[in-house]
Design a protein around this nucleic acid. Structure first.
Lengths: 198, 198, 198, 198
DNA sequence: CATGAATGAGCATTCATTCAT
DNA sequence: CATGAATGAATGCTCATTCAT
């Protein structure tokens, strides 16, 4: 009764719980995609088919949920940086591709647009995640590209990342607008020194 | 229609009403600047020193208010385009300056940042305004810059305007981030043909 | 339109509002009587036949409501002290009667029992009210009774008032228990010096 | 029923269960002392280091728990009555001391104050316990004190017990108020016949 | 038997919007 | 026309209680 002879008992519960958490996470990703990270907690819970209490048990604050939703993808992105640096023809190409993967993650492929709409906590949490995980990676890539003379603009990794994030944060169903184009434009701008305005 | 020649009651009332609308508009601009366009209606009414009912009478929906708040500034911006085209050294310079004036208006000088935060209606309304008033102006400028060979990227005026808008929509008090830099980066990108990604 | 010639316009609105406030206050008194001051705000609103918003407009915090409910009665009680001092045969009699009036108010006649049940804010608010308004009155009465040798126990007005309050706070429908008896017992105890225990 | 003579599994399990119940009871006593008997069930369970399910198994309702927590102490108090009657100088002294022991138990020494705060069930359960166990004891003491002429007031044991209970039920951290004083005042009042009010 | 995950009712609070004065 | 009182839907959060493991 206390300790079963086989090792299935305790793990079984844990596995269920994990499955549940995945369900919530997936539901949250979907809801965030259409309603932003500020979506009503109830809505997320309903989408996951669980009670609000369950959601609160797993993710006491909205930030916890937001971070959990995006963490794995952000980590994958962080790992992709060094890989691209060796696989792409040039460092600049690596940056361009990596940034577009960032866009994939944030807004397009996984449908996570409107990420920070109207929620200070969610914003802060994601912000921290981005800064911690992604800035160092992009920073390294920019260094390489500068060393090879491909990048002339003196723009920090944080600055660039943030700009891309802002670009992607919006752009709902607008057939006349393509975030990709804007992002490419931004990255292309890196090639030249920054002019001054007035 | 504009100004009746006689001095009856009607015009006087109209003038009062106009004064009232100006008051509301100014108050709204201030409130939007600090709390975003999603600010409580009451807050705007209070700042204007009028009752909520009055506000609703003048601006039945939030969109109406938002549009009214920004219309005059947008019109001024529209007029600035042609002027810059003749006064700036090159068409590209004109674009760069004009875009920064747009930034001034949206986020910095007039403190109208966080314009679309968390409000679909406000967004739609502003969007329409931008498209109608500003896209033609920027379009003309881009044509000129392309004619002189300064702009190589095939990016539409709408696309560019929208990107700038998204860039400025955010950027609260973050000392490590400067919207101007991002905007300049974006515009600089115009000089070169767009690379393709994958 | 701005300022009506007769004085009925502005007052009319105010009178309605006041009537409304009275309605809420009466309803709250009734609800507090049966469910304690910790009763759901909704319940009070429903009892008053108004929306919760209305209740919140008039009384932003529960304390505000609690205080408002009891203020007038407390003030009446404060005024009764000096009167009793002159009308009652002795100062001790005055105290006894006054304390019983306090009981009337708190728990019996107006059905305001269970006043502080389960609500820290309500408690604090009432506490302050009692201390400010009633302690000085009772203090004066105790002084007089001590001067005439009727009271020997060295008990402060606050101490006595609080004890009575605690006594009355409870005692729901219990036919075998009579708060009056307990209160009288307490007051009677004042006549003799306090024995020490252990 | 008490202690089986053989050493099989059953008794061992029972002993475990009993140990568990003690743990819960102690934890509950502690939690009730600081948060009142209305404390979240979870809190009690956590303090006991058991799951809520376990707590519910042992004590299906909050009343069951409350009663269980206080039963042993109440029984001890019941036994103290007759003892005091023989050891104290007079019957009145015995009453005074016994009542203060009651206070010890309820609120001070064992930290069980705020016993009935905001919980009807807890109240009812304790009430029954008091009536059954303590009223007869105090009744006997009052009889003795009346026989010796020390008590003149015609107050029932139940009435007195209840009054003391109410007095102790409150009195949180208020440096200006001392329950002991009030209780002594109440008991002192027994010495004289009750005056009538109005 | 013990555990603690899941559930959902219950409550406080905010705010957009309407409408009597 | 202006006012601001009234309304109630929407939302976040907490807990008591049940039940699968």
């Amino acid at each position: 009764m206390r300790t079963p002879t086989n090792g299935t008992d305790a793990p079984r519960r844990r596995r269920d719980v994990e499955r549940n958490e995945r369900t919530i996470l997936d539901a949250a990703a979907g809801v965030f995609a259409v309603s932003g990270v500020g979506a009503p907690v109830r809505e997320v819970a309903a989408a996951a088919g669980v009670g609000v209490g369950t959601l609160y048990r797993h993710f006491p604050t909205r930030s916890d949920l937001v971070v959990a939703v995006y963490r794995s993808q952000i980590e994958a992105l962080a790992e992709a940086g060094p890989v691209l640096l060796t696989s792409a023809p040039t460092a600049f190409d690596a940056i361009l591709r990596w940034v577009h993967q960032f866009v994939d993650f944030l807004g397009t492929k996984h449908g996570l647009a409107r990420v920070w709409e109207g929620d200070a906590d969610g914003f802060t949490a994601l912000h921290a995640l981005f800064v911690d995980e992604l800035v160092p990676v992009l920073s390294r890539m920019l260094d390489d590209a500068r060393a090879s003379g491909e990048v002339a603009a003196s723009v920090s990794a944080y600055q660039l990342l943030r700009a891309v994030g802002d670009l992607v944060a919006w752009s709902p169903q607008d057939p006349d607008y393509d975030v990709r184009t804007s992002v490419t434009l931004l990255v292309t701008g890196l090639r030249q020194a920054q002019p001054t305005v007035d």
